[in-house]
Write a protein that binds this DNA or RNA. Structure first.
Lengths: 346, 346
DNA sequence: CCGATTGTTGTTAGCGCTAACAGATAAGAA
DNA sequence: TTCTTATCTGTTAGCGCTAACAACAATCGG
């Protein structure tokens, strides 16, 4: 019977015919070249070249029950927030010839669920998910699928499967403590109302450290944690306060940079008038003027470890859930050190 | 015969049996719900819920010869360079229920070729590719596949298929001319030796404008156009020059920001001592201090138009190659002076 | 009241590939 | 030599779904 499409694509059978072998041999040349004698391999490879054959991975996936892809589910791909993580994942995945499929949730659990469901439908071989907070329904379908899952960038006692854990709480607490140690006394925190659990944990870590130092937490809220424009809102709020804080610890480096620039734009000196700290150790932070104090997180390492754990589980090298804790570093730089403050010009 | 895997997944047949219909009806409920009577649809939907069935899109793709995915091929996904474009594509794709698969080339044509080949193997329904310069072999397999292709972020008289064109040459020329118009006389350009054609075109546009104003082009080279650290190299080079230029036009905003901050760090004033301009209109540029003069490009619009054109072609709404020209704007801001923006068209 | 039209559901035959196993051949052991 | 054993290639039977068409029921105009 003729093709349903009428437009005949080159298939493995065409290659096999041309090389005078079975399709199975062509398949082997493509997937495990060592399993075929050099002579046959050469003939098949020539036939592939001559016919312009392209291995149909859709059919291959269906037959082999493996797609050779892993899903990476992020709150956001647009901002630079997780690009280091993605790169780390990519470097490992490339080594194993595994493809990555990226999905974005916009910090929305419903969207996350939809992404997971779709990717299960596409039969990815495993999941790396940023965050540990999911809909019960999401946990259910993931567990039911039996696929390996690595959660990351947060910590929990009850991961779905494996976890590359980072304690945002501890990290924010450490930064706050360090700020107190550099003799800042009134320290505010910039947070957002909302659905980002990692941001919440940072706020709590800050509040705990503040209380431990006998200080009342001062929390400023902004809408968008991904945009430097939030810095203007912060600056306004700070200037409106009767007794502004000496230091502002922002939930991430983007907001911190925005805040610092907005303050400077209004003629204030950082850290002279107000010190500013961020979170995340984004690449640009060290180049700002003054260089931004931040909680350095090894973005690439998080991705690499998550990918390695996932791939070990996919390949069956590892069979038990793994937990790995990621270390952070409080990097005190000029934006909070009064000593080396530099003058600044608009 | 038992499953080859031993582990029986819920299939459409299970759902059909439970709902007392044929698999075809289940398939219809999933793909074109209107084509099924409400009564049957409800029964099938209930059966899907009860069994926890997940539509196997791999099998679906193989049978229907459509994957419902499009490939987006970018030089880099990590930097913020193309995140606006991706977002634009995403907003359109979501509307049509189409998934995006992202691939990264690292500005390497060989890598681009590998990405295209793999994605052809995954039987994506179409391609959006940043750039118009490809290996002949890449053009060949794309053309041979018969799939719609939209190239973008550059311009050419011989696109593979459709194009959302931006003239980097004209844009850089316009910026350079604008800088001359604001009475800068010695204007340098920051470029990279290398494989990025869009960067090359900007350099040429700059050089053309410089010559048109009777000035000798001054070109500074850096290695990495994606990293703010390049700014330090530039600052060093500038300071080492006997007669430094009055303005530096950087190939993109990241390098421009890095340069500006590196100059300021060395105690120079921008624009007082040296004016700095960028290219791309990245979000952060307006928040810098001073705000960065840049060539504003409608990132989101590029993505939206490319996606719209591609999807029209996939759906057969449009059958002929389309060309669309994207407008850019020279946004003169404080880093060079204070004048109004002007419009141009590629 | 009947053939034609429209709308809905089922049947059949693959989509293009690979797992599992069988068969063939060469190499090594007894 | 004969019997393993190891290595390579081919055969068979799906993987789970949907396009195309057939079958059937409902609706309609004359």
């Amino acid at each position: 019977m003729p093709s349903r499409q009428g437009k005949a694509n080159t298939t493995m059978a065409d290659v096999a015919r041309r090389a005078g072998v079975s399709t199975m041999t062509v398949s082997r040349v493509l997937r495990r070249p060592d399993a075929v004698t050099a002579e046959l391999r050469k003939r098949v490879e020539a036939a592939i070249r001559e016919t312009g054959y392209i291995h149909n991975l859709v059919a291959s996936s269906l037959a082999s029950q493996r797609t050779g892809t892993i899903a990476v589910i992020l709150p956001t791909i647009a901002s630079s927030m997780f690009s280091g993580t993605v790169q780390g994942i990519g470097s490992v995945a490339r080594r194993y010839g595994i493809q990555i499929v990226l999905a974005e949730t916009n910090y929305d659990l419903e969207e996350e669920h939809r992404a997971v469901a779709t990717l299960l439908g596409r039969r990815v071989d495993g999941f790396i998910i940023v965050g540990v907070h999911h809909l019960p329904e999401t946990r259910r379908i993931l567990a039911q699928s039996g696929l390996p899952v690595v959660e990351t960038w947060d910590t929990t006692r009850t991961p779905i499967d494996s976890i590359v854990a980072l304690s945002n709480y501890d990290a924010a607490k450490a930064m706050t403590t360090a700020l107190f140690a550099s003799s800042h006394r009134r320290i505010a925190f910039v947070a957002s109302e909302g659905r980002d659990r990692r941001a919440e944990m940072r706020r709590k870590g800050y509040a705990a450290a503040a209380k431990a130092h006998g200080a009342d937490p001062i929390i400023l809220y902004v809408d968008d944690l991904r945009n430097m424009s939030s810095g203007h809102e912060i600056a306004e709020q700070l200037l409106r306060m009767g007794q502004p804080p000496e230091a502002v610890f922002c939930v991430n480096d983007v907001v911190a940079a925005g805040t610092m620039l907005a303050l400077q734009r209004r003629g204030l000196s950082v850290p002279g008038d107000i010190a500013v700290a961020g979170f995340g150790g984004f690449d640009f932070s060290r180049y700002l003027l003054p260089a931004l104090t931040t909680v350095d997180v090894p973005h690439g390492e998080i991705g690499e470890r998550a990918a390695q754990i996932l791939l070990d589980r996919i390949r069956g090298t590892s069979t038990a859930p793994t937990r790995e804790n990621i270390k952070f570093t409080v990097s005190l730089r000029d934006s909070t050190q009064k000593v080396r403050a530099q003058d600044h010009r608009t």
